[in-house]
Design a binder for these strands. Structure first.
Length: 472
RNA sequence: GGUCCCAUCGUCUAGGGGUUAGGACACCAGGUUUUCAUCCUGGCAACCGGGGUUCGAAUCCCCGUGGGAUCACCA
């Protein structure tokens, strides 16, 4: 048995979890479960300026909605690895920073922000890549200005790692710059805190988005400076928007809770997200979580970027909605019914749901699909069959009222009477049914007519037919 | 611009020295049907280009092109 698998998902509470982020969380989760290892959530709140107050709540709500339950993390029973919030680990970072400072791996830099911008602009003007080195640093204070701790990148052999997804990666040290490890406010940067924590928490695999590839060499240098063994790195392909650019706010990159609120099922989102950059080599499309866990291996993670396709998500969600039993689906519909449905009981709503289940792509469509079951629709007379003039329409409606007056409103009887009427009057079924459909539902597209009338009931159905005669 | 990465239908992808290059979404057509949806059947649609290597390349190599990521006291 090799060293146990421990992976982590380290969100920063500077924003909400969007689908790109959560894909990383999912892959970590699947990898951990597959290997019977630990899935750890660590909050990286070292950017004090951009903290978003309710982001942490949002992040945990998102993970729990998707069922990505952490084994270790904030709010969970304490372990020797905790705490799992970086702002509570400051002493640790200072202690390790001190160690590197003594070793000469870190140095104090008093360079001002203005000076830094100036240097960058100069480099820009000369079309040279800007690379901060110790020669550029201001090693002594002029007054009482704050300093940062920079990591000294020494020249040497290339930094190499064997990425579990991308294969061997090789970086020349010349292109790396002396990055900041501890900021002037005393907080560590991502690079520093991340490495210290991953080591202390005995993280075995760092599975994160591909945008981290360029900073991985810095992390490796840090491991080297400490004399620590780096974890295995596995970078996940970027998730792109339809315009092929990295998914972000400007795509309206929806955050996870927005999908919840639109009535996507978590298992459907998980299924879809898992297919973004991973497949098991079969033609299987629909996976339970257990199947994903079983199938998930890093070997089969893609290195080419994947475009997020909302239409495919809709399809998968529809598949899941259709596969649910009526009771189970009903249980998920809370909060999605139109307001007018409130005064109706569960039995009635379930019957309605039964009629629209196969038409739903996501639950937020419920109101537009079902509102006429709960309140009389407004009738747009332009939707009535154009082949019939007002007089003919009126006659048919009146005949129909008479024909249905004695019906028991079972689907079978409804069908018998309506078809019978069409036949004896030598009319077209489509025309008459279309007419009734618009009168009853206010729409030209709706569930089956007999089922609809049956569920709606005799009183409401006849009432709607009668009402229309007044406006014809 | 520097560095790095990526490249099979519009999209997600399978495959990979010799295949009719497979599946799914979307789209189109037909069937079922009272509409819509579901369901069934069929169709459209791809190996970025050029050189090599090879008996043979979409597959391996090189170059080009295109796309992406990243170059912060943000993560």
């Amino acid at each position: 048995m090799s060293k146990s698998v421990r992976v982590r998902f380290p969100p920063s509470p500077t924003g909400y979890l969007h689908v790109g982020n959560v894909r990383s969380a999912l892959f970590n989760y699947l990898f951990a479960r597959h290997a019977r290892g630990a899935f750890i959530v660590r909050i990286e709140d070292t950017d004090r300026e951009r903290l978003v107050p309710d982001a942490i709540t949002h992040i945990f709500d998102s993970l729990s909605w998707l069922g990505l339950t952490p084994d270790e993390g904030p709010g969970l029973p304490a372990t020797t690895y905790g705490p799992y919030v970086q702002s509570e680990r400051l002493k640790l970072y200072h202690q390790y920073a001190e160690e590197l400072l003594k070793k000469g791996e870190l140095y104090k830099d008093y360079t001002s922000a203005e000076r830094l911008t100036e240097l960058r602009q100069e480099a820009q003007a000369k079309k040279q890549p800007f690379r901060f080195t110790k020669q550029l640093a201001q090693l002594e204070p002029i007054g009482d200005e704050p300093y940062v701790l920079r990591f000294r990148v020494k020249l040497g052999s290339d930094v190499i790692w064997d990425d579990a997804v991308w294969g061997e990666q090789r970086w020349q040290r010349e292109v790396l710059d002396d990055f900041v490890a501890v900021k002037s406010d005393g907080y560590p940067t991502y690079h520093f805190a991340n490495v210290v924590d991953d080591h202390l928490m005995e993280i075995s695999h760092v599975i994160r988005a591909a945008e981290w590839i360029p900073s991985t060499p810095k992390h490796i240098l840090l491991y080297e400076a400490f004399g620590w063994k780096p974890p295995t790195f596995a970078h996940l392909p970027t998730v792109l928007g339809t315009d092929k650019a990295k998914l972000s706010k400007r795509h309206g990159a929806k955050n996870v809770l927005e999908y919840r609120d639109a009535g996507y099922l978590p298992e459907a989102l998980v299924n879809y997200l898992a297919s973004l950059g991973f497949n098991d080599g079969t033609t299987k499309e629909i996976y339970t979580e257990a199947e994903l866990i079983k199938a998930f291996v890093l070997d089969r993670v893609q290195s080419s970027p994947a475009v997020f396709d909302p239409e495919r998500l809709d399809w998968i969600n529809g598949v899941y909605i259709r596969s649910l039993s009526l009771d189970k689906l009903y249980a998920r519909c809370d909060g999605f019914w139109p307001a007018v449905a409130a005064k109706h009981d569960a039995i009635y709503k379930k019957r309605v749901l039964g009629l629209v289940q196969e038409r739903l792509k996501y639950l937020a469509e419920l109101p537009e699909l079902t509102s006429f079951f709960f309140s009389d629709p407004a009738i747009d007379t332009k939707l009535l069959p154009k082949q019939l003039d007002a007089a003919a329409t009126r006659t048919i409606v009146e005949d129909l009222i008479a024909a249905l007056e004695n019906s028991d409103f079972s689907e079978a009887d409804l069908e018998k009477r309506l078809r019978g009427y069409v036949k004896t009057h030598d009319l077209k079924a489509g025309q008459v049914f279309g007419l009734v459909r618009v009168i009853i539902t206010g729409q030209t597209a709706a569930p089956g007519l007999f089922e609809t009338l049956h569920v709606l009931g005799k009183k409401t159905s006849l009432w709607r037919l009668q009402a229309i005669t007044h406006i014809l």
